[in-house]
């Protein structure tokens, strides 16, 4: 669906929307990589992650933290996210391209995902969550 950056003095606050939980998580991934690297193309680099957590908020934090980890150690910038959530389990297939300093250096380095104010709510037809990325 969409994501937008809201005002936050110290860090980056993103409001993310999705018609389903799967879509919300996909958009959250896109929002995070947009902050970190700016633009990105699908050039065949792929990855898969599987996680389990006790509630959707913890699952979202674990998923984004895992994306940060994989991106950093595997040097991949992701742009396509295919998320499948079944109850407390998440599987995600990710695609993107190798990190290229010439094209991916315009963003902000994210240090972590904050728990502060993170709550997934259903607003009419959409799921919405505000996420603070520590930069």
């Amino acid at each position: 669906m969409s994501f937008e950056e809201l005002e936050h003095t110290a860090d980056v606050l993103m409001r993310v929307r999705g018609a389903t939980l799967n879509e919300l998580f996909e958009e959250a991934g896109r929002a995070m990589f947009h902050v970190m690297y700016g633009s990105c193309e699908d050039r065949g680099a792929g990855w898969r992650i599987d996680l389990e957590a006790e509630n959707p908020e913890s699952l979202l934090i674990d998923y984004l933290s895992e994306l940060l980890f994989v991106s950093e150690v595997e040097n991949i910038v992701f742009c396509a996210f295919d998320v499948d959530i079944q109850s407390t389990r998440l599987s995600a297939v990710l695609r993107g391209e190798p990190f290229d300093p010439a094209r991916h250096s315009a963003g902000a380095h994210i240090k972590g995902i904050s728990y502060f104010g993170l709550e997934i709510v259903k607003e009419e037809e959409n799921y919405v969550v505000d996420i603070i990325f520590d930069i």
Partner: peptide, 28 residues
């Protein structure tokens, strides 16, 4: 960054064990 991420998660799980009530989960 990873140490903070990992231990926030562990400490969040431990809150019930120590009966700690928080106004903000980030204070785990």
């Amino acid at each position: 960054h990873q140490v903070a991420t990992d231990h926030l998660r562990t400490l969040e799980h431990a809150l019930a064990k120590y009966r700690i009530q928080l106004p903000d989960r980030q204070l785990a």
